[in-house]
């Protein structure tokens, strides 16, 4: 069974909401990434999205753009990230998904990329610039290797939702806003109506992401879904730290706070 399913089943039994955290692989360096994953797991993260840094991340706001650029400036390559995942897997069975732009997979070689994902222990892929219409290029190869392609839904999806979620696996990535990633003070989407629509078409767990800037917002989002995705806020906290060790410490403290709030929320 895929680790993503195992995790959501486990959380369901415990009546807990999933805390999904995004970090950029290789920011500030790949050794720190390995330690960071292990530390934020310990702090309560349930699933980790590892961002493969990309030169032209059109779905991302400034915080993640800059984080990607730092990683690329350090020369991090896909093969380094694969090795790091292998190292993490020796010590942890937390579900891991890559957040990866399509050109990275395409140029690296779709089959090679997916085979390596399975070898090192990646459980799924989130590909923000590969909509439903392009999924056919990759999905058979991915499913044969038990790599999930996480379906993404946006507030503009409307009648596309049904098609997007047909045969969806893992969880549904529900984009909370019209816009790119990055923290917001508040969001204007009618989450209740939006999530009702999504729930109509899919039985797999839902997680809401984009725009979460603090514990209160995470708590708010978690009322409507089985999980909440936090990215830019964690990276911001790390980037503002004076050194790597402090960065890991602050990220872990923030994750811990988030997870506690999500636990409290179950009533």
């Amino acid at each position: 069974m895929n680790r993503i399913d195992l995790k959501f089943n486990e959380l369901k039994d415990k009546k807990e909401k999933a805390l999904i955290t995004f970090i950029t692989a290789g920011d500030p360096d790949i050794v720190t990434t390995v330690n960071l994953v292990l530390e934020i797991e310990r702090a309560g993260a349930d699933l980790i999205e590892l961002g493969i840094p990309y030169s032209d991340p059109v779905a991302d706001g400034e915080v993640i753009q800059e984080s990607s650029q730092r990683a690329l400036n350090n020369g991090v390559k896909i093969r380094d990230i694969m090795k790091a995942v292998e190292e993490i897997r020796n010590k942890s069975s937390i579900p891991l998904v890559y957040l990866v732009y399509y050109n990275c997979i395409f140029k690296y070689g779709i089959e090679k990329f997916i085979r390596e994902c399975r070898q090192v222990g990646i459980d799924g892929l989130i590909i923000p610039d590969l909509p439903l219409e392009g999924r056919g290029e990759i999905i058979d190869c991915a499913y044969e290797n038990d790599i999930y392609i996480i379906p993404m839904v946006a507030p503009t999806s409307e009648e596309r939702i049904k098609k997007i979620l047909k045969d969806g696996r893992g969880f549904v990535y529900c984009v909370s806003i019209k816009g790119v990633t990055g923290t917001r003070d508040r969001i204007s989407t009618d989450l209740r109506g939006y999530m009702n629509l999504i729930n109509e078409y899919s039985k797999i767990p839902k997680a809401i992401g984009f725009g979460v800037s603090n514990v209160e917002m995470a708590k708010g989002f978690s009322k409507y879904a089985e999980g909440v995705i936090v990215g830019s806020a964690i990276i911001k906290a790390m980037a503002a730290s004076p050194n790597k060790e402090e960065g890991i410490r602050r990220a872990a403290a923030f994750v811990k706070e988030l997870k506690l709030a999500l636990r409290d929320n179950i009533s």
Binding site: P131, A154, P155
Partner: peptide
Amino acid sequence: GGQYVPETVMNA
């Protein structure tokens, strides 16, 4: 060619 864009703009 094709349409390799985020879901948010697909309807647009």
